[in-house]
């Protein structure tokens, strides 16, 4: 239905020719923009309802029952469903550490939370299909688990700001929401998130459409294809400063993959844009010292690079 509408709009009303580069780029742009914004609204609503059952206070309680690697896995999975914006990361960090949750498990949660978010997942599922969406989800959780375990092993506790250990938050009661409140929370999330990201979606899809119609496939495949061993590392380094356009990068990456960029390289790029960002580091600096931030960036960066190589390798056999 959306496809029909986009065809009607571009080929009939705007009078563009289907066979031209311009025609197919403009069609791609309208079709994807409408589809993604529509799907985003529905998915954010559904995920927000699920999220309303997992406030951070409940997550904290659940997590304090798990030890070692199970704790890391569980923390990482909870990172996917717990409502969490970057401005809550500090209170969550303090709450976890103060209640005795090990540092490594806290980091598993903090790493996965931004990598796997509903917006990225919707765009991956709708642009790349469920297989790649699922791969992204699993590898995002994996990066959180590995990153957390390494930080635990390194014994970084002394690089947490001292005051964090001195705070005592006490026992807090968990507010039980009724269905009216859950629905109103979900509606607000849709308004808030779609209101924030639609510009980036449109810009990203616009650039993707340009690449789709015009970029030279041979050139890209040569530099970022599966045969260039350094492409994953380059993708992660380029991805880190691109935080603000995390949403916009997905359609660009999809168009690039159509031109021969390898899957692992593309996934690493997306994870780097979401997991490691300067604004998030500045916020985290309030509770952890620079040494630990450096370790955090290095460990997560290396894990993402590892995931990229793994996928590029696995794709040889699929």
């Amino acid at each position: 239905m959306i496809n029909k509408f986009a065809e009607l709009l571009v080929y009939n009303w705007m009078g563009l020719d289907e066979a031209t580069r311009l025609g197919s780029s403009v069609h791609f742009f309208f079709y994807d923009s409408i589809k993604i914004i529509f799907l985003l609204s529905i998915m954010i609503f559904v995920i927000s309802i699920i999220r309303s059952f997992f406030p951070p206070e409940k997550t904290k309680k659940l997590l304090s029952n798990y030890k070692k690697i199970f704790g890391n896995i569980f923390a990482s999975i909870l990172g996917v469903v717990t409502p969490f914006c970057s401005c809550s990361s500090v209170p969550i960090f303090i709450g976890f550490v103060e209640s005795g949750i090990p540092l490594g498990i806290t980091f598993s949660f903090l790493i996965t939370s931004p990598i796997v978010n509903e917006v990225a997942l919707v765009m991956l599922f709708s642009l790349f299909g469920w297989k790649i969406g699922l791969l992204y989800l699993i590898s995002g959780i994996l990066v959180g688990v590995i990153g957390g375990i390494i930080i635990e092993k390194l014994g970084m506790e002394k690089y947490v700001e001292e005051y964090v250990y001195e705070i005592s938050t006490g026992e807090e009661d968990i507010e039980e929401l009724n269905w009216d409140q859950r629905i109103s929370f979900a509606k607000n999330e849709v308004k808030d998130i779609v209101g924030r990201v639609w510009k980036f979606v449109i810009i990203g899809i616009g650039l993707g459409a340009l690449i789709h119609g015009y970029a030279p496939a041979e050139l890209l495949a040569q530099y970022a294809g599966p045969d260039n061993p350094l492409s994953v590392i380059a993708a992660v380094i380029v991805g880190i400063p691109l935080y603000a356009n995390a949403v916009g990068t997905i359609p660009i990456v999809q168009a690039l993959m159509g031109k021969g960029v390898a899957l692992g390289t593309a996934l690493s790029f997306m994870m780097a844009t979401t997991a490691l960002s300067l604004p998030a580091m500045i916020i985290l600096r309030k509770v952890i010292k620079t040494q630990l931030i450096t370790v955090f960036v290095t460990v997560v960066g290396l894990s993402i690079i590892g995931v990229g190589y793994m996928f590029n390798f696995v794709m040889n056999f699929v």
């Binding site: 951070p56 904290k60 401005c87 303090i94 103060e98």
Partner: peptide, 13 residues
């Protein structure tokens, strides 16, 4: 202030 927010037992703002 983050410290005060955490002290009040708030984990989600």
């Amino acid at each position: 202030d983050m410290k005060e927010i955490a002290q009040a037992g708030i984990m989600s703002t």
